[in-house]
Deep mutational scan, measured.
Amino acid sequence: TTYKLILNGKTLKGETTTEAVDAETAERVFKEYAKKNGVDGEWTYDDATKTFTSTE
């Protein structure tokens, strides 16, 4: 399943996707990605669109 991440950081904005077996796995991948890029925001998830959003 393809999951999408929308980053709305103070210094980094953008989108990326990952293939994962479930939302929990995708969330771990995306949170590590955000951390590596210095984004520490509030997380939301929309199951209908398989989209995570992190907003600082």
Rank of each mutant, 00 (worst) to 15 (best):
T44A: 09
F52L: 00
Y33R: 02
T1Y: 13
K4S: 05
A20I: 02
K10G: 07
V21M: 12
T1I: 14
A34E: 04
G9E: 03
K36T: 10
D46L: 03
G9Q: 04
T16Y: 15
K36H: 09
E15I: 13
K4Q: 05
E19F: 15
N37Q: 14
A48K: 12
T17Y: 14
G14M: 15
K50P: 01
S54I: 15
G41P: 05
T44L: 07
T25R: 06
T1M: 11
G14H: 14
K35M: 12
E15F: 14
N37L: 15
F52C: 00
K4N: 06
K35P: 01
K36P: 01
E15Y: 13
E27H: 12
T2G: 03
T16K: 09
D47N: 09
T11S: 12
T11A: 11
Y45D: 00
G41M: 05
T53A: 05
L5G: 02
L5S: 02
Y33W: 13
K10M: 13
V39F: 15
T17R: 07
A26R: 01
A20L: 02
T49F: 04
K10R: 13
W43Q: 01
G14L: 15
T1H: 13
I6N: 04
R28A: 13
L12N: 08
T25C: 08
L7F: 12
L5A: 03
G41H: 04
D40H: 13
T51H: 01
V29K: 08
Y33G: 01
F52Q: 01
T18Y: 14
E15L: 09
K50M: 07
Y45E: 01
R28C: 07
T1F: 13
V21S: 11
V29F: 15
K50R: 12
N8A: 08
G38Q: 06
T51Q: 03
D22V: 02
T2M: 13
E27I: 08
K13F: 11
T17S: 10
G38N: 09
E19V: 15
I6T: 03
N37E: 09
V39N: 04
K35T: 09
A20P: 01
Y3H: 03
Y33I: 07
E27F: 15
K10T: 11
A20Y: 02
L12Q: 09
E27D: 05
A26Q: 00
T49N: 07
E27C: 15
E24A: 13
A20W: 02
E27M: 14
K4G: 03
R28F: 08
A23R: 14
E56M: 07
E27P: 00
D47T: 08
G9A: 06
Y45Q: 00
T17P: 01
A20R: 02
A26T: 00
T2F: 09
L12R: 09
K31R: 14
D22M: 03
N37F: 15
K10P: 11
E19L: 14
S54W: 15
K10Y: 09
T25G: 07
E56H: 06
A20F: 06
A48C: 09
T1Q: 12
T16R: 10
L7D: 01
A20D: 02
E42Y: 13
K13H: 12
G9D: 03
K31V: 06
D46V: 04
G41T: 05
D47P: 14
A48I: 11
T18R: 04
D40L: 12
F52T: 00
S54H: 07
E27G: 08
E19S: 10
E56D: 08
E42T: 14
F30L: 06
T49Q: 06
E24V: 11
Y3C: 03
E32K: 06
D47M: 08
G14W: 15
K35A: 13
T25P: 01
V29N: 06
T11C: 15
E15T: 14
N8Y: 12
E42P: 05
D40N: 14
T2S: 08
E27L: 15
K36V: 12
Y3E: 03
T44C: 09
K35W: 10
F30M: 02
I6Y: 06
F52V: 00
